[in-house]
Design a protein around this nucleic acid. Structure first.
Length: 873
RNA sequence: GCGCGGUUAGCUCAGCGGUAGAGCGAUUCGUUUACACCGAAUGGGUCGGGGGUUCGAUCCCCUCACCGCGCACCA
């Protein structure tokens, strides 16, 4: 065994361990395996993406699930891949093109541009895959998929054709969300409503039939008034009833537009008069439909105004046009006033610019399997964790709207529809172009990226893989894509495989900064996980993050927490070093054959309890709880107490030392295994260094080692275990009490002292070697009676009354004891008040009352003892 | 407007009917032979406010405030 360095250096170890796993093919899933299957598909990150803390959290959780499943003897498939991310990727490449060649994608043409995107993808894409490897993710990398892979693409198009044939996909001219920056339609989910400060412009239109009469109209968007084709009032509004059927004058371009009545108008809002712009507002469009109004589109796809807006506005950017229109109204004396106003404006999620409602020809999907998909979650067949997301899902599913699936992009799955060149009304929908291809032209649009993502759990698998691993077990994802992705996958799974795509969905926390803000590039509050890994190690990052990621709550990220993760790795490392310094393992003799001290029994009992708590936590996806019990047990129970106690035991040598080594090996090996899913690299390293690895092949790795039993002492009665644990606890409490006493009387920590002890009955024959050592006592003088030989500071413990040999100021000690008694009196008074309360004694259950009585008795006993000590001073 | 979370020690968070917990930070001590990425000890909280249910509420109910997030609407 090589010498272990003093401080753990994760860099080299992590890289080496990961490379070894890969070399041995540890992560590849075998569909022919007889072992039970466990599978997860990764939420495919954007191919343009770089690792964020969100990814670290998400993928660490998946890795924990996957690694634990391997330990449980399952055949594990964690299927990785990336998403082509239509808009994001196309934007990146276009930006590069503009910067480096001063060209747009149209300059290159579709074919050439797509070539560039692929080149870009080969060169820069998938950085995130390397980063996931750095994190230690145990994905089956040989199965890495990309949503634009040939076979995947074919499945996407096939699904389109099938849904079309079923009548669920249709083409129509409807109001859609238009992003003027990306110049494509978007789905409702890609629009984010943001409260936005603006102005409310109150203007007036003259009534054509009644010159001199004006209608006051409030609007936030005067730049679209050129597209007004009516003015609307509520049919029952007494102020305007007489005007219904007459006309208003649109000032520019000057035109007479009808005054219509529509119940959509809110009489209480503004002036109760609405200008109707059917081409640029969803509600207006509907009013237009009801009244047969002309649709006058005054905007270009890029958000500038077009010729219909009139020569002075044509070509003007929409927000410049807003000011210009307002100015022109003012000039014409038609602007009554402007008010500051805040309203909700829809923004494009990707480009972060206000979207335009726009009438255009698009493809839509009527979702399949909606009732079944709702039922799957409602019935618990698919379990959402935390559960409350099920309600959000249910709510969305009940209000589900048709999905606009076409995008005016080039990067993506091209819509498998062809139109006859001589008659575009003739359509062919299929995987291939018609035989006389030259007479047809394919639809220019591509499909929404999510239209491919929703097939991910099964489209990534071949038949054999599917047979073994589908449907998958767990999905780990962020709640922000519950509609984008999770809900749609459920529907697609049911529609195309007849099965649910996964059984459990764990929704992760969202990571925020210390101020509670979402991590974002523009805020610059998002630390680079690679930097964090360089500083603290992948294991440190993983463990630190797991400890602060609560169940279903948002996380406030604090680098201190990651530092703690690193410190913990170091602690583990040094505990292993300590074990190594104690010499070789006592062969393979089972624990039962060793002489085990009460301290050893107690730590084994604590280990088992921790193991049970850990299992229960992980079974319920309570990752942070599992991390907490792991941390607490190791640092506190094992290192601070057991290892320290063992130092005293081992100085005795012989069978005692042998027993301690065996117990340490038992605990360290079991512990490394439990910790392995959280900190894979260091645990694998120590597993080998401490000699726990058996054999040469994969089975030598901690990765595949079978988990230890939850009962380390199966031959021993529970009662006996509890007795040891209790006795050891009493010793430790006594140690603590002496330490407090020493601190109070300023006995330096390294100075040995003499203790006088009057043992209590339970400890008559208990070996006090460990106690003496931990209490830093040079010797312990046993006393028969309670009375002290000298006037000494004193403390009462379950072990017995302990006196610290020290010349003391009697008055000071008396004062100390009186103060302690006063505290006890308060406690006694509390209990007595409680017990004197008849409503309590009559209302509370007997065992509660008994507990209070017992507590009171304990305090009284303690007080009596102190009283006798006081008397002897 | 409707709904969902949250509000516990300086910070990050557990606990969720029967004496308020952890880690970090703070303070004081400590080069005791694994670890200063360490050890020992100490201090620190009317569990957001107000009502209610209960013998008893941080925990259950109502209400208010603030923070965050959905959904809907906005001329």
């Amino acid at each position: 065994m090589s010498e272990i360095s003093k401080a753990y250096d994760p860099g080299a170890v992590e890289e080496r361990r990961y490379a070894d796993w890969i070399k041995r093919g540890c992560f590849s899933a075998n569909p022919a395996s007889p072992k039970p299957a466990f599978s997860i598909v990764i939420p495919p990150p954007n191919v343009t993406g770089v690792l964020t803390l969100g990814h670290v959290l998400n993928n660490t959780l998946q890795d924990i699930l996957a690694r634990r499943a391997r330990q449980q003897g399952k055949e594990v498939l964690w299927l990785p891949g990336t998403d082509h991310a239509g808009i994001a990727t196309q934007t990146v490449v276009e930006r590069q093109l503009r910067k480096e060649e001063h060209k747009t994608r149209r300059d290159l043409g579709r074919e050439e541009f797509l070539k560039r995107v692929w080149t870009w993808k080969e060169k820069h894409g998938g950085i995130i895959i390397k980063q996931l490897k750095r994190l230690g993710c145990s994905c089956d990398w040989d199965r890495e998929r990309f949503t634009m892979d040939a076979d995947y693409s074919r499945q996407v198009q096939d699904v389109f054709v099938r849904l079309y044939e079923k009548g669920l996909i249709y083409r129509g001219k409807r109001m859609v969300n238009w992003c003027p920056a990306s110049q494509t339609a978007l789905s409702d989910e890609e629009v984010i409503m943001k409260p936005t400060k603006g102005k409310l412009y109150v203007m007036r239109y003259e009534v054509a039939e009644e010159p001199g009469t004006f209608l006051e109209i409030a609007t936030t968007r005067p730049e679209t008034l050129m597209g007004d084709t009516a003015v609307a009032v509520h049919p029952e509004d007494p102020r305007y009833q007489h005007l219904i059927g007459k006309h208003a004058v649109r000032p520019f371009p000057r035109a007479k537009i009808p005054i219509v009545a529509d119940t959509h108008i809110d009489m209480t809002f503004g002036t109760g008069v609405l200008k109707v712009t059917p081409a640029h507002d969803k509600a207006d469009f509907e009013i237009g439909q009801r009244h047969g109004l002309e649709v006058l589109d005054v905007l270009n796809p890029d958000g500038t105004l077009n010729a219909l807006a009139g020569p002075e506005f044509a070509g003007m950017e929409r927000f410049a046009a807003r000011d210009a229109a307002a100015a022109k109204l003012a000039e014409m004396g038609l602007l009554v006033r402007e008010e500051d106003y805040e309203n909700n404006v829809g923004f494009s999620e990707r480009a972060d610019v206000p979207i335009e409602p726009r009438l255009s020809e698009q493809w839509f999907l009527r979702y399949p399997q909606v009732p079944a998909a709702r039922e799957a979650v409602a019935s618990g067949k698919i379990r959402f964790v935390p559960e409350r997301w099920a309600r959000i899902y249910e709510h969305w599913m009940t209000n589900i709207q048709d999905w606009c699936i076409s995008r005016q992009l080039w990067w993506g799955h091209r819509i498998p529809v062809w139109y006859r060149k001589d008659d575009s009304a003739v359509m062919h929908v299929g995987l291939e172009a018609p035989a006389d291809a030259e007479n047809w032209r394919q639809d220019e649009d591509v499909l929404d990226t999510w239209f491919s993502s929703w097939l991910w759990p099964f489209a990534t698998m071949d038949d054999a893989t599917r047979a073994k691993f589908y449907s998958t077990n767990d999905l780990v994802t962020g709640p922000d894509i519950i509609f984008f992705w999770v809900a749609r996958m459920i529907m697609a799974g049911l529609e195309f495989t007849g099965e649910i795509p996964f059984q459990n969905v764990f929704f992760t926390s969202i990571i925020r900064d210390l101020k509670g803000r979402k991590m974002s590039k523009s805020l610059g509050n998002s630390p680079d996980p690679l930097d964090l890994m360089a500083k603290y190690g992948a294991d440190g990052l993983r463990f630190g993050l797991m400890r602060i990621a609560p169940h279903g709550q948002d996380v406030r990220f604090d680098e201190h927490q990651i530092k703690e993760g690193r410190n913990f790795a170091n602690k583990l490392w040094n505990a292993a070093r300590f074990r190594e310094m104690q010499g070789a393992s006592p062969a393979t003799k089972p624990l039962a054959e060793h002489t085990l001290s009460p301290y050893s029994l107690a730590v084994l009992v604590a280990f088992d309890a921790m193991h049970a708590a850990y299992r229960q936590a992980l079974d319920n996806f309570h990752f942070h709880e599992a991390a907490a019990v792991l941390y607490e047990f190791f640092w506190n129970t094992y290192c601070d107490w057991y290892v320290e106690a063992s130092k005293a035991e081992m100085t005795e040598g012989g069978t005692a030392a042998e027993g301690v080594r065996a117990v340490m090996d038992h605990i360290l090996s079991g512990y490394l295994q439990l910790l392995h899913p959280f900190m894979p690299h260091i645990t694998e390293e120590l597993w080998e260094r401490l000699g726990f690895a058996q054999g040469e092949g994969r089975e030598a790795l901690i990765l595949f080692a079978a988990l230890p039993a939850e009962d380390s002492l199966p031959w021993m009665a529970e009662e006996e275990k509890a007795k040891s644990a209790q006795a050891v606890q009493a010793i430790y409490d006594a140690v603590r009490a002496v330490r407090v006493l020493r601190a109070e009387f300023k006995v330096p920590a390294h100075t040995e002292c003499v203790l006088h002890l009057a043992r209590s009955g339970d400890f008559t024959n208990f070996d006090l070697g460990v106690f003496r050592s931990l209490a830093k006592a040079s010797k312990i003088l046993e006393m028969e009676a309670q009375a002290p030989a000298q006037k000494m500071p004193h403390v009462l413990t379950a072990l017995g009354a302990i006196y610290l040999e020290l010349e003391i100021d009697v008055e000071a000690e008396r004062a100390r004891l009186l103060a302690e008694m006063a505290k006890i009196d308060t406690e006694i008074a509390k209990v007595d008040t409680k017990l004197a309360d008849t409503s309590f004694t009559q209302g509370a259950p007997p065992q509660v009352i008994a507990a209070f009585q017992k507590r009171g008795d304990e305090w009284r006993t303690k007080r009596a003892k102190l009283e006798s000590v006081l008397a002897s001073l």
